[in-house]
Design a protein around this nucleic acid. Structure first.
Length: 705
DNA sequence: GAGTTTGAAACT
DNA sequence: CAGTTTCAAACTC
């Protein structure tokens, strides 16, 4: 490792100064020196080329979580560069077709492209070639960093200060957010460039199942697009991780990043299982890899989270037991729905990997990948199951909020009957859903699959479905169009805040008040007691954001006076707490704090000019009772360790301001007339937490490219 | 499985 | 921004 780093770091300048170096050879030999060397100033630049594909929007989406000056500076520089470069990568959206903002044309043109295969190919070909190796490396780095692959000799820990890494390693949960974030963003980035690897594999059909099982075989690509996604994912993830790392370390951001890339990357690369090139499934694969690592070498990583160690092994090899996780679908929304469960987050992250749908969201569950999905699901589910088991709850029940997503995933299972059966069992029918679109072509939010950011699968009953990998361009274009209209269109509808604080305050009721429907429902006749109600469907209580009439939501009525009061108090308390202590936590404990998905979201939204009608502020609020856990029999399933919760909250808060500022729309705070808790622009602080929670994890809007 | 109900999404 | 239409899921039978 040290040698490799040296080589990498061995810049011309360094070579010229060899004679000088000799005098300090002893220093070089020291780990510290190696570390310093690894902090190559060049590294930061390196990411730039890769970022070409990154959408300008991605900038905004960059996690605002990291508020440290260093990070910010780094972020800015990098993003700016990326931004500039991003255009070339997206000819069809920007140059060729004009701005995506051009709503009317988007679909049409995309459709045209689809019609003409050559068009897409050409575009693909025109795509700037990327340095796959770098990407892979960086990507690997990300994963390695996140998962601490046992196989890797070089680990972030090696480079980073022991303390920081230790903190991360102490809990895989903490790491998850990074992965998720990275993967998600990258995925969202539209991928039009085809990686070399992808091309080589392009058109090849894969036995996903086998691929998954055999990490080395993962290099097969199902589609060219995948590679792009992968690249972006890598790129974005890399930058993101880098920033995070830097931030965490609070040291020379750029340099640190470079170091990390080199160090971690190599190791990961060595482990094929860690970097499955298959774009969307990459995440899953990674997860699988991770699981494998855990399984195979659980003990190797002392720092591995207890959960992983305990749970993973238990689940390994037990496919039948790996039921489906509702969130496995990995829908973006799902993520938001279950922010508390870090494990779930992992799964979600995995999902992102799959999500191809767009740059923004992405779950890519296109037909060919069904096998993969099954496998991936199994992987993801394993973790999730673990969690569930851990909590003594059956995984199946979690599905509700994300049932829609799961439906897709599960749907994908068709090919492998066995697995499907397994999933069905796990799902218990609740989360098994497929779209049945007749007129929307699955390109509107009417389509659950599309809305979830996943491709339709064969099991869907849709007609004239365009929500398939083959129509990626169309899907992406449509997505962008929709997002341009409503940046939060693909955001998770139900946001489950993982605020330990809230829980604490509401602990008596056992109802984490953090879960809320993003926009609130508008039910008139269902009394919010049927799945027509999105709040109810999401397993969350109605809140002040809801315009429902005669609300009887079992999870919490919006008009519940008690609830409201509780919420207010909780919010206030939380606010004060956060304000007082969280800030410090962020700064001081960044190392142990995983990047929260929310940050991602926030950044993504940052690009938004027009806030959706939904009001973020209230979302996070504790107003609604999230009895979903109770209902589903998972009391604490969604609730992450308090420590992490706090951290997340912190991030969110930090992010919120940025997000709000950028969005600069008071409307974001609350669109509904009833909003008691409207947080005015100035009131960001108070609403921060809420916003963050609401923002949690949804497909990157901006990242859509 | 067909038909109805419902409310979100989309449209005007 | 409000009202209307469209749409597909949820629901009922």
């Amino acid at each position: 490792m040290a040698e490799e780093q040296r080589e990498v770091m061995d810049t011309p300048e360094r070579s010229n100064n060899n004679h000088i170096a000799t005098s300090i050879s002893k220093f070089e030999d020291s780990p510290v020196f190696n570390f310093l060397n690894s902090l190559s100033p060049i590294k930061p630049v390196k990411s730039m080329p890769i970022s070409q594909t990154i959408n300008p929007l991605s900038f905004s989406s960059f996690p605002s979580v990291f508020t440290s000056p260093n990070i910010n500076s780094l972020r800015e520089s990098r993003f700016l560069r990326r931004h500039q470069l991003s255009d070339p990568s997206k000819p069809e959206f920007s140059s060729d077709n004009g701005s995506m903002a051009d709503k009317g044309k988007v679909n049409v043109e995309a459709t045209k492209k689809l019609d003409d295969p050559r068009t897409s190919d050409e575009e693909m070909a025109s795509e700037p070639s990327y340095e796959c190796s770098k990407i892979v490396t960086e990507f690997a780095e990300n994963f390695n960093f996140d998962y601490n692959s046992p196989n890797s000799n070089i680990r972030p820990k090696d480079c980073l200060e022991g303390k920081h890494m230790t903190d991360y390693e102490s809990s895989s949960l903490a790491l998850v957010p990074f992965v998720e974030d990275a993967s998600r963003r990258s995925l969202y980035m539209n991928p039009h460039g085809v990686s070399q690897i992808d091309r080589s594999k392009e058109g090849s059909s894969c036995d996903w199942e086998s691929l998954i099982s055999d990490a080395p075989d993962m290099l097969n690509y199902e589609s060219p697009n995948v590679s792009e996604s992968y690249k972006k994912l890598v790129d974005y993830g890399t930058s993101f991780n880098t920033c995070m790392k830097n931030d965490m370390q609070n040291t020379q951001p750029r340099e640190g990043s470079g170091m990390m890339e080199n160090a971690v990357t190599d190791d990961i690369i060595d482990d094929p299982s860690l970097y499955n090139p298959k774009g969307w499934c990459l995440v899953f694969d990674i997860a699988g890899a991770r699981r494998k690592h855990l399984d195979g070498n659980t003990s190797s990583d002392v720092n591995t989270s207890s959960n992983d160690q305990n749970l993973v092994p238990s689940r390994t090899g037990n496919d039948s037991s790996r039921c489906v996780l509702p969130s496995i679908g990995l829908h973006l929304n799902a993520i938001a729905a279950t922010p508390k469960d870090f494990k779930i987050v992992n799964n979600e992250a995995l999902a992102f990997g799959r999500l191809l749908i767009g740059p923004s969201s992405s779950v890519n569950s296109h037909p060919p990948t069904q096998e993969m999905l099954n496998n991936t699901l199994a992987v993801a589910s394993s973790e999730r199951d673990i969690d569930s088991i851990e909590n003594g709850v059956l995984p199946v029940e979690d599905a509700l909020p994300i049932s829609g997503f799961m439906a897709n995933e599960e749907t994908n299972q068709i090919s492998p009957k066995k697995k499907r059966r397994r999933f069905d069992q796990a799902m218990e029918g609740e989360s098994c859903k497929r779209c049945n679109c007749k007129k929307s072509k699955c390109l509107k939010l009417y389509c659950e699959c599309f809305a979830a950011g996943v491709y339709c699968v064969d099991s869907c009953s849709c007609i004239e479905c365009f929500n398939k990998p083959a129509h990626e361009d169309t899907v992406l274009a449509t997505r962008r169009q929709i997002e341009s209209r409503n940046p939060l269109a693909f955001a998770p509808k139900v946001i489950r805040g993982s605020d330990s604080i809230s829980e604490t305050w509401v602990e008596s009721s056992k109802t984490p008040a953090s879960a809320r429907h993003k926009r609130g429902c508008n039910c008139k006749k269902s009394g919010c007691l049927k799945k027509y109600c999105e709040c109810y469907q999401g397993g969350v209580g109605c809140s002040i954001n809801c315009r429902c009439e005669g609300c009887k939501n079992a999870f919490g009525r919006k008009d519940g006076i008690e609830v409201e009061l509780e919420e207010d108090e909780t919010n206030t308390t939380e606010k004060s707490i956060l304000d007082n202590s969280l800030q410090s936590d962020l700064e001081q404990n960044m190392d142990s704090v995983p990047p929260a998905t929310p940050s991602r979201t926030i950044r993504e939204f940052s690009s938004m000019k027009k806030p959706p009608r939904s009001s973020y502020p209230s979302i996070g609020s504790s107003s609604g009772f999230n009895t979903s856990n109770q209902v589903y029999g998972k009391p604490s399933f969604f609730q992450p360790p308090p420590k992490f919760d706090n951290h997340f909250e912190n991030f969110r808060e930090d992010e919120i301001p940025e997000f709000l500022q950028e969005s600069s729309s008071p409307g974001i705070n609350s669109s509904s007339p009833n909003r008691k808790r409207v947080s005015p622009p100035g009131g960001l602080k108070s609403s921060r937490k809420l916003i963050l929670q609401s923002i949690p994890s949804f497909p990157s809007l901006a990242s859509n490219q």
